[in-house]
Amino acid sequence: MEKIGSDLYAALIVGERWKIYLEGLANTLLLSLIACLVGVLIGVTVALLKTAAAGKKSVGWRVIAGICEFYTTVIRGTPVIVQLLILYVLVFNSSFAACIAGFGINSGAYVSEIIRSGIASIDPGQMEAGRSLGLPQGKTMRLIILPQAVKNILPALFNEFIALIKETSVAGYIAGRDLTKMSDALRLRTYNSMPLFIAAAIYLALVVGLTAVQKRLERRLARSDRS
């Protein structure tokens, strides 16, 4: 116990090292939030394009559908760390920009499938009803289909954000100053592994807290469906 206490003191108190964890946590949350927004924008765009292209026989729509399918297949089929390294080495000089792009593009591939499945879960008669009222397809999708689909997929999108927070732990491979990277740097300075246990505890607290929020959201949505 004495050793654990001294390791905790060295990892947290000496030189106000607790501030380093806060800096890493802030960077992790900022990176996750921005990358999630980028992923949602990409995901919505890809999902709408794939949905619009379904059943279309023109060459243009078939090309668009092929590009979207290629994107989701490649991104979901390759490790995120490899994608980050490619972006960092070949495209960006900034590790933060590479992380935003890498995690955003990676998340977008998964979000697009979530949104596409949400749209597919809506009764096709809803689209037909909108069109019968004289609404164009795009407006019917925006005003009738998407609001219902978003309600169905909100829990899954929230779960994707939780997964994204954990995925950012590999940002240190390209010099990203996230919570894991900062904790590992402290490990080298303190000569003990306590900083890594502290980082794990912070991640666990984040995930447990966000999961509780997600479950509460699911219960509220379920109540609104029954009412």
Rank of each mutant, 00 (worst) to 15 (best):
A98E: 01
C99G: 09
I100H: 03
I100Q: 04
A101N: 03
A101W: 03
G102F: 00
I105N: 07
N106F: 12
N106D: 11
G108F: 03
G108K: 01
A109C: 06
A109Y: 02
V111Y: 10
V111T: 13
S112K: 02
S112G: 03
S112A: 09
E113G: 03
I114W: 04
I114P: 03
I115W: 09
S117A: 12
G118Y: 00
I119R: 03
I119F: 08
P124W: 04
P124T: 07
P124M: 05
G125R: 01
G125A: 00
Q126N: 10
M127D: 10
M127S: 12
E128D: 10
G130P: 05
G130T: 07
R131G: 12
S132Y: 09
L133C: 11
G134D: 03
P136N: 11
Q137M: 14
Q137E: 14
Q137D: 14
G138T: 13
T140Y: 05
M141F: 09
R142I: 15
L143W: 14
I144D: 09
I145Q: 05
I145K: 02
L146R: 03
L146Q: 06
L146H: 06
L146V: 08
P147V: 04
Q148D: 06
V150M: 15
N152S: 14
L154V: 11
A156C: 12
A156Q: 13
A156N: 12
N159Y: 06
N159W: 07
E160I: 05
E160N: 10
F161C: 08
A163V: 14
L164I: 07
L164H: 05
K166E: 06
K166N: 05
E167S: 15
E167A: 13
T168D: 04
T168R: 02
S169T: 05
S169Y: 03
V170M: 11
A171Q: 06
A171C: 09
G172K: 07
G172P: 11
Y173H: 13
A175E: 14
G176E: 02
G176T: 02
G176M: 01
D178Q: 09
D178V: 06
D178Y: 08
L179Y: 05
L179N: 04
T180Y: 10
M182P: 11
M182L: 13
D184V: 14
A185Q: 13
A185M: 15
A185V: 15
A185F: 14
R187E: 12
R187L: 11
L188S: 15
L188R: 15
L188F: 15
R189I: 13
Y191A: 10
Y191F: 13
Y191G: 08
N192L: 03
S193M: 13
P195W: 02
P195S: 02
P195Y: 00
P195A: 01
L196M: 11
L196A: 09
F197P: 01
I198E: 00
I198Q: 00
A200P: 01
A201V: 05
I202G: 00
L204D: 03
L206C: 11
L206G: 09
V207D: 02
V207L: 01
V208K: 07
V208Q: 08
G209Q: 02
T211S: 13
A212L: 10
A212I: 10
V213Y: 10
V213E: 07
Q214E: 08
Q214L: 08
Q214N: 09
K215G: 12
K215V: 11
R216W: 14
R216M: 15
E218H: 01
R219N: 10
L221M: 00
A222Q: 12
A222G: 11
A222E: 14
R223G: 14
S224Q: 12
D225R: 15
D225P: 15
